[in-house]
Design a protein around this nucleic acid. Structure first.
Lengths: 109, 109
DNA sequence: TACCAGTACATAGTAGCGCTGAGTAGTGAT
DNA sequence: ATCACTACTCAGCGCTACTATGTACTGGTA
């Protein structure tokens, strides 16, 4: 990852994952694969798993263990109501920041 | 600052300041005041000065010391060519991220 | 049989950035 | 003499993403 991207992902990666989880339960490996398909080519596996542990600990997601046809059992994460509320706040925060930056880019000051 | 905003600012605050500096040399206190006027109400002074030290050390800005009518001398920062190049990369990175998030927000997946 | 690629998760240690909280110093007004 | 405003500095902290490595199961292949 470029250094700029690494820093910029702080705070946003969480929102990205939560948004992906909306109405779409998924497990870690699946999320990692999806992120890479979205152009986040170099997202480290460890990053995603650490993030999932965090949002679980913060009570934003529910977890269910399911056997896999290939390899170890999967931990399937789904957004709960606290997670939805948190995601809403995320969009508000993001919206504010995106507005400021859009202003700066298109004309300045 | 809200916790989400604090995390999201990592990586972007630098770009915001560099963008402000484009064709518009400024000093720390001025930048802090401007940020607050833009809605970043709780940005800590210390944060801005630390950021300025960093971008100076990274060679993105030139610095000139000027006396002030009120208070200690000002350190006026202006974007140099390295800074401009860095800012361009910043906009590329930001653009990529903003696209991804816009997609996620407006429809999902 | 042995090995490797793919699937799936976990975690200790590190780097970087913004925040907290405190301090220094100069000017002008009450 | 005190306060408010201007202007900059710095040590220590918390949080997030990255690095690097390890575990474990399945299926293909040499």
């Amino acid at each position: 990852m470029g250094k700029q991207m690494t820093e910029m992902l702080k705070g946003t990666l969480e929102g990205i994952v939560l948004a992906f989880l909306t109405g779409n339960p998924a497990y870690g490996y699946e999320i990692t694969t999806w992120l890479r398909s979205q152009g986040f080519n170099e997202i480290a596996e460890g990053t995603v798993y650490a993030l999932l542990v965090r949002i679980e600990k913060n009570g934003l997601v529910d977890v269910e263990k399911r056997p896999s046809e290939k390899g170890p059992p999967r931990k399937v994460y789904s957004l709960n109501t606290d997670g939805e509320k948190y995601l809403e706040e995320f969009w508000t925060t993001w919206g504010f920041l995106a507005d400021r930056l859009e202003n700066l880019r298109t004309e300045g000051k």
